[in-house]
Design a protein around this nucleic acid. Structure first.
Lengths: 166, 166
DNA sequence: TTTTTTATGTCAGTCATATTGACATATTTT
DNA sequence: AAAATATGTCAATATGACTGACATAAAAAA
């Protein structure tokens, strides 16, 4: 009897875990991983969008901070950054305190582009928020926050800090 | 006065949207997109894991159903499937009703591998569930479900149906 | 001041996962 | 018999990541 109960309990937990894992996969895929006509139109990819997004959120961000936040390698970032610099969506300024640093800023053109390419994602997320109800937001945030690893948590804390200082 | 209130209201919403978008990115990345030593050890990638996972959930699944569920092209799937067939993690049986179909099943070896490679993800998700609290689960599921597009929803409904028939 | 560390950039080569379009085969449906 | 379907396969391509090595400039430490 105890064994059966235990097994059932275990199965219920397992189902919840599997449901969570699968929803993460499908939800993320449908939200972000689908080809974006706007990005395509500008000849940019999602990697470019991510850089634009975070530079937009933290103007004057150094390259190293971006690398840490995105957890990609210098080489991966550098190609993306090069494209964005060439196409004048982003500018670099040499750091005043530390002249080795290249501080990143969106140009007016970059801001415009970012707004454009982010737009349908915002719409998508807004629709989901309304559909799921405001009460679902906290659970959603709590779960996702709990999924972050320690390094990301630190970065995100610093990051939120900076966006609020502006 | 009204203008200011409106602007504030708009900003709050926007912040919530941006937070949701960013958490999706970071949460998904840290949950699933990090290099998995177990997968690497077997010379497999995440695409292989996904196939193993869904075939494990729906034994006897046809190739077309898998294509629809994963939303990838035949060519993408075929390479992954070829690897898994060669390495005997999966077997194909010709459909009895429709002899054109190749129905997919995990071998005992495949089941073992799947359990192994899924294990740390389950652990990760379980930890997050405990940390976020059971009450967060519903919001998490609601939001993710609301993010699915119509096609995925249909597939997931069919899918859940089939896993419960077993 | 010299040495070391840090912030950044860059080169060359590789990999995983996806794409498109065309075509082939077997089988079922009309 | 013709059309549609389920699957498989070819060649070529793209994106976004990786590693490892090396270079430069500037800051920090010795």
């Amino acid at each position: 009897m105890t064994d059966i109960k235990k097994t059932l309990q275990k199965d219920v937990n397992d189902d919840a875990l599997i449901k969570s894992m699968e929803l993460m996969y499908f939800g993320y895929r449908d939200f972000i991983a689908w080809p974006d006509e706007v990005l395509e139109h500008y000849g940019l990819g999602r990697a470019h969008h991510r850089v634009l997004h975070f530079v937009g959120r933290i103007p004057g961000m150094a390259v190293a901070a971006l690398l840490s936040l995105l957890k990609i390698t210098k080489q991966s970032l550098s190609r993306v950054l090069k494209d964005l610099l060439e196409k004048k969506y982003i500018t670099q300024k040499i750091g005043r305190r530390d002249r080795r640093q290249r501080l990143l800023y969106l140009t007016a053109k970059g801001v415009k582009l970012l707004d454009h390419i982010t737009d349908h994602q915002k719409t998508h997320m807004k629709k989901a928020c309304k559909e799921a109800g405001i009460s679902s937001m906290n659970g959603f945030w709590n779960m996702l926050t709990a999924l972050l690893d320690e390094h990301t948590k630190e970065d995100v804390i610093n990051y939120v800090d900076k966006t609020h200082k502006e």
